[in-house]
Design a protein around this nucleic acid. Sequence first.
DNA 1: AGGCGACTACAACGATCGTTGTATCTTCTG
DNA 2: CAGAAGATACAACGATCGTTGTAGTCGCCT
Lengths: 228, 228
Amino acid sequence: MTGMGSEDKTRTAQPRRGRVDKATAIVQAACEVFGRDGYSRASIDTIAAEARASTRTIYNHFPGGKEELFRSIVQWSAERVRDEQLAQLRRYLDPERPPHPDDLERDLLALARAWVVLITDFRYHFSLVRHIYAEAGHIPAEVLDAWQEAGPRVVGREVASAMAALGDRGLIDVHGSPAQAAAHFMALISTEITQRSYWGVRPLPPEEADRLTSAGVRAFLRAYGSAG
Amino acid sequence: MTGMGSEDKTRTAQPRRGRVDKATAIVQAACEVFGRDGYSRASIDTIAAEARASTRTIYNHFPGGKEELFRSIVQWSAERVRDEQLAQLRRYLDPERPPHPDDLERDLLALARAWVVLITDFRYHFSLVRHIYAEAGHIPAEVLDAWQEAGPRVVGREVASAMAALGDRGLIDVHGSPAQAAAHFMALISTEITQRSYWGVRPLPPEEADRLTSAGVRAFLRAYGSAG
DNA sequence: AGGCGACTACAACGATCGTTGTATCTTCTG
DNA sequence: CAGAAGATACAACGATCGTTGTAGTCGCCT
């Protein structure tokens, strides 16, 4: 939004220095530090050090200060993870190519496993989400809504429509509400893992995580499988 | 833990002044403020004001300062809520008096509803839990373990043994792991509500919460009901 | 009454932190 | 080369906060 004028030729496209673009370095560092320490504990100095930038540069890029920086990275991180989650969803549960009934459990399990991997891959993002939930009372409603709409709600809707597709083809029985089935699917595959691992802070042994994931998928299929 | 010694006559039993015991006033206020603001944002001055005490009194009762106060109230709050949850569990799912098969869904639903009510009743406690999860990386492992062992793990074990009892009597099929069934039950009845309501910060309309709860119970019974 | 224990008001300290201004430096562009 | 634009180092400010010390107040018990 800021900085990039309207008709500059190729100037701002190339990173000024030989290094990485300072702006993205700051955003990445801020993601990590905000995720690790939370809004209050995170200090501008720490973010600057992590980004190998000076605090002054941060304030040049984000005139709104800490608050604007936080809003920006929440949005940025949500979009990034959302895209990754949607990619895995389309990869293992493409509404265009429904799986054979025999492969349904395999595909759901593959999706679940891929998502669990994302939880540790994007550890800092999910730490950030934890802090968002914890500090929900101190975050303006508009910011919360913008975040939900940029990330979680989109994913939820996509999973719901995938469930609807499976239902239409008779692979599962959504029992009237594809959205409800989607929510239950996500709850069953992730709740226990996230809780036991403190949202990835203390990762579980892989085989344990796998056991929980497949148990969740099997329970989901018993609850929503069309064959029963 | 403090205060109630073993052989004090009647001195510490009666509040010294005409008011409430300052210690419990401080603990309650600290619970509320820590839950609302989190560890870093919460200030001793705020807690003192909320407890109508002076900061000096706080340091007299908790020589360890902010850290000890936090540890104490985490433990205290966890025990209180645990007892409440166990009471509801025994009320609606007493292992000694298993329900008739026809009443199983009704009883499970009653338990689920009672627990959902607790989420808003003990709003500050669950806010505290959010912050614990968010700041897990900054809390000593021993404190985290002590908290889990004083609260969540006990409840989880009790629900698991209730599930085992239901399984033994053929009312449900635990599919090999009562603990897993318990975790799935709790996930199905509470995950969506807690997420959608931001853990009680923005409470859902009661009928909406009810809809989600009963949908969770029905899904659980489809996954774990012995009749299928 | 006298003393004791708990509570309080008040001030002060050191530390951390968000934020800004300024002067200097580097690197790219014309 | 000159100039511009971005980045940096540095210092300083005001504010908040945890914590401690001190002196004083209030109510209870002997």
